[in-house]
């Protein structure tokens, strides 16, 4: 399944004001991998995601999805295979009902209404909110909104899911549900977050980014237990890897 591979080669991007957000980044993500992208605020995570999705285009380097370059001409195809969930679900949900929001993508690809309905039902089942299909999105709770936003992307049946801060502003239970949900997907996943415990629970591999450059790329557990590295780049060891706060004993 080579077309599920995402390759980023010598990627470079600077904003019109001259700020260099991405500098010479290269990495490859293979089919079925879950990759966390972490870094302090302003490290370039969101810019990287926007480059991958073709919302903005790089000044140098290239992005390959399988054998296809991400360019203006291939956007429609690329976007059908990459599904991006935004940080704020309110940006993604704007129709009058959850059903219409989830159906928005498939309808844009001119699928017939029966197929649209199948896909919507499938996506809603998958995130466990089939009972909310006729509700208005603005009436949902934070966790439900997030699930609906995920469903609105799943209905396009993408090969790869890209998520920007999927657990931000969620209560602990809702956060846990989203983690379970992410783990239940077989898709290739790219997740950016400051929630390092969530990254530890969902991703096998992690990229650490600082000022537009990749400074570490490796197994999640190894990278996230490297206290020195994390500390040097404005991050912190995940709570679940820290010593017991009461007795100071090491976590097994």
């Amino acid at each position: 399944m080579s077309h599920h591979k995402l390759e980023v080669k010598n990627l470079h991007f600077s904003y019109p004001d001259g700020h260099e957000a991405v500098k010479n980044m290269s990495f490859t993500i293979y089919h079925g991998e879950s990759v966390g992208i972490i870094g302090a605020n302003g490290a370039g995570k969101s810019t990287l995601l926007m480059l991958i999705m073709g919302i903005i285009f790089p000044d140098g380097g290239e992005i390959l999805l399988g054998d296809v370059h991400v360019t203006k001409k291939t956007l429609s195809m690329v976007r059908q295979r990459l599904g991006m969930v935004f940080q704020d679900p309110d940006d993604q949900l704007f129709m009058t009902s959850v059903y219409d929001d989830v159906a928005f993508g498939p309808r844009n690809y001119n699928l017939d209404e029966e197929e649209v309905e199948n896909r919507v039902n499938y996506a809603l089942e998958m995130v466990g909110i089939a009972h909310l299909r006729d509700r208005a999105p603005y009436k949902l709770s934070g966790g439900e909104k997030r699930a609906a936003a995920v469903a609105s992307v799943l209905s396009l049946q993408p090969d790869m899911l890209i998520m920007d801060e999927p657990t931000s502003a969620l209560d602990p239970k809702a956060r846990r549900r989203i983690i379970h949900l992410l783990n239940s997907f077989e898709h290739t996943k790219i997740i950016t977050s400051h929630d390092l415990d969530m990254i530890l629970d969902t991703c096998q591999r992690v990229l650490v980014i600082r000022q537009g450059e990749i400074i570490a790329d490796g197994k999640t557990l190894e990278v996230l237990s490297n206290e020195e590295l994390l500390d040097a780049y404005g991050l912190e060891t995940p709570l679940s890897l820290q010593n017991c706060p009461k007795c100071g004993s090491l976590k097994g």
């Binding site: 976007r79 309808r107 844009n108 001119n110 396009l156």
Partner: peptide
């Protein structure tokens, strides 16, 4: 905000035609 809403729309294949099913 409008920019982000529009981006999320175009990422889901929106190309100017508003389909209502």
């Amino acid at each position: 905000r409008a920019q982000r809403v529009y981006q999320s729309m175009s990422l889901r294949g929106f190309n100017g035609e508003y389909h209502t099913g």
